[in-house]
């Protein structure tokens, strides 16, 4: 008992066996690493606010003296000079992101429910296959995918981007793991005994219980699709995406440094805002993300 009495207590929780030296060391490391992560991000934002003369100041300054939104208005001016109206790029990205995410959400939740809550022959190897697919990147199947897309005549259509996104596995994996641990079998079993059909059990009982997993899947799918850039499947200018158009501005070279920084800010605000809003739900889903042997 003597040892327990020695435990220090912090406001939020009981903390055990912590030396001051260790605490300080960790704090210093964390601040150094945090600076490495945060300062470049801050630099992007500061650069986007710098007037032209400050961007070309020597020696370069990190901070901004006379912040201006000039770069953002330059960016919008550049957008208006593009060949295809900029709203079209934005529309393409939104269409791809929304339809792709919706399909992935519907198909993944259906499959995740069956894989986690119904016992049927073939279930285990199906899930094994899905776990295996997490073990190599999409490039490994890109060549054959291109042949497949041409065979389906999907080259230069939205389908080539949207439909494969419906079968993306990370979201399904996370949702299946979450369902497995947070939807109790007893509840489902009693519903089934009360005469609830499998479909009804899925829609009315299981789905409302896994809201954090839906949200996580939506965020992941949306983030991935939002950043769809130039694709080997799309060559018509009017089908290209917002991210592609932005990257064209970014590659405009050093003279457009200000506008490029503004473009980066515009592109990163959306995914970061989405994450901030859904952070607690995502963390709840991640708690069950572990992979069993």
């Amino acid at each position: 008992m003597a040892k327990v009495a020695k435990l220090r207590t912090r406001k939020h929780a009981v903390v055990l066996n912590r030396s001051r030296g260790g605490d300080t060391g960790i704090a210093v490391m964390l601040i150094l690493m945090g600076a490495f992560m945060f300062l470049p991000m801050l630099y992007v934002v500061l650069n986007s606010l710098k007037p032209l003369d400050e961007l070309w100041y020597y020696p370069p300054r990190f901070y901004v003296v006379n912040p201006t939104f000039q770069n953002f208005s330059d960016l919008f001016r550049l957008m208006n000079t593009s060949w295809v109206p900029f709203s079209r790029y934005l529309f393409n990205t939104l269409l791809i992101s929304v339809v792709g995410t919706l399909g992935n959400l519907i198909l993944s939740s259906m499959a995740a429910y069956a894989l986690s809550k119904i016992k049927f022959p073939g279930r285990d190897w199906m899930f094994q296959l899905i776990v295996m697919s997490l073990m190599f990147s999409a490039q490994a199947s890109a060549i054959a995918n291109f042949i497949l897309m041409s065979a389906l005549h999907w080259i230069d259509t939205y389908f080539a981007i949207i439909i494969p996104a419906w079968g993306s596995t990370l979201g399904l994996y996370l949702m299946k793991q979450f369902m497995e641990s947070s939807v109790s079998d007893a509840v489902l079993e009693s519903a089934r005994l009360d005469g609830s059909s499998e479909l009804n059990t899925f829609l009315k009982i299981a789905m409302p219980m896994v809201k954090p997993a839906w949200l996580t899947l939506i965020v992941y799918s949306f983030q991935g699709l939002w950043q769809t850039g130039s694709s080997i499947y799309i060559y018509s200018e009017e089908l290209k995406t917002f991210s592609y158009a932005i990257s064209q501005i970014l590659s405009g070279g050093i003279v457009r440094q200000g506008a490029a920084a503004a473009a980066s800010v515009v592109m990163m605000i959306v995914p970061i805002a989405v994450f901030v809003v859904s952070q607690s739900n995502i963390m709840e889903t991640m708690a069950t993300s572990g992979m069993k042997d």
Partner: peptide, 11 residues
């Protein structure tokens, strides 16, 4: 944030 910030790495 850096992992989801899209093109921010061009900085």
């Amino acid at each position: 944030a850096p992992s989801i910030a899209g093109s921010a790495y061009t900085i």
